[in-house]
């Protein structure tokens, strides 16, 4: 079972929820940090890292001796990653999507694809948690290949928890795609609600079932809860706004460790999700 934890708006508590779910689980679990631009789950899990894998993409390299400066590669590239100047072809590798069109079209085979590192995957263990984290290198623009590589580690029939990045576009979609369930963490403010609605639209399009966690409950207004009730969206948990909880988060202490009574609540969230999934598939 794959549960992804997403939010639309950043800073609503995705990492808090994802890490606490993993710690509370009674079985072995894989925790995937797919927020590869800003991975934070390691701060709370503190796993022992056993291995690393470098993740790269293929980008074109022009052999100047073979190149006849016909410019076909620059015209076929849909991403402006290649440009022609009077005596050479320039490659802007950060714009490249690695589609391979340029090397295919080159009439004189002057283009080789070479691996360029985009980031790293770290693999570790902590108690019942197999921890897999992707991290985008500084200055790189495209996180998708790293997210895909992290998800390659998914073992079928295991409980998998994915900490997804904020937003509603490609990184969030790639992270939540093929999940059995998506847990949406929101906060009770107009910002939280506006982004929650956008995220729900995305999940509907991806055909993924979802439920909501309201974090910092009591801080803002009632409209998020009303919205969920009106639209029959299950609210699986509410975490009140308390300075003590905020403080443990600040120090990198998981809520279930500072307040062990939450473990039972998180376990209940997992069983509730299982029920929803089996009901939906029935």
């Amino acid at each position: 079972m794959i549960i992804s934890v997403a939010s639309g708006k950043g800073g609503t508590g995705k990492t808090t929820i994802a890490t606490s779910l993993a710690i509370s689980a009674l079985e072995d679990v894989q925790l995937l940090d797919c927020d590869v631009e800003e991975p934070n789950a390691h701060i709370f899990i503190k796993p022992k890292i056993d291995s690393k894998e470098s993740i790269g993409v293929l980008v074109p390299q022009i052999d100047a001796n073979k190149c006849v400066l016909c410019g076909r590669c620059t015209r076929i590239c849909a991403f402006n990653a290649l440009a022609i100047i009077p005596n050479k072809i320039l490659v802007f590798s950060e714009l490249c999507h690695s589609c391979g069109a340029c090397q295919y079209i080159c009439p004189v085979k002057a283009i080789n694809e070479v691996k360029k590192e985009l980031g790293t995957i770290k693999i570790g263990q902590k108690n019942n948690i197999k921890f897999i984290q992707g991290e985008l290198n500084i200055g790189e623009a495209i996180p998708i290949p790293i997210i895909k590589a992290v998800k390659e580690y998914i073992v079928a029939n295991k409980l998998v928890i994915i900490d997804a990045p904020p937003g509603t576009s490609c990184p969030m979609i790639e992270s939540t795609k093929n999940s059995d369930f998506c847990l949406l963490v929101t906060e009770p403010t107009p910002f939280g609600l506006s982004d929650l609605i956008l995220t729900i639209e995305v999940l509907k399009k991806l055909k993924i079932s979802y439920g909501v966690v309201i974090n910092r409950a009591g801080l803002g207004d009632e409209k998020t809860e009303q919205y969920c009730q009106l639209n029959d969206i299950p609210i699986l948990m509410k975490i009140p706004f308390q300075k003590e909880i905020a403080l443990t988060y600040a120090k990198g202490i998981p809520i279930v460790e500072a307040f062990p009574e939450y473990k039972i609540i998180f376990r209940k969230v997992i069983t509730d999700i299982m029920e929803i999934i089996s009901r939906d598939s029935a």
């Binding site: 631009e37 800003e38 985008l136 200055g139 996180p143 904020p166 937003g167």
Partner: peptide, 10 residues
């Protein structure tokens, strides 16, 4: 701006 360090931020 947006959160993160990738393409929208750049």
């Amino acid at each position: 701006g947006s959160p993160g360090v990738g393409c929208p931020v750049i």
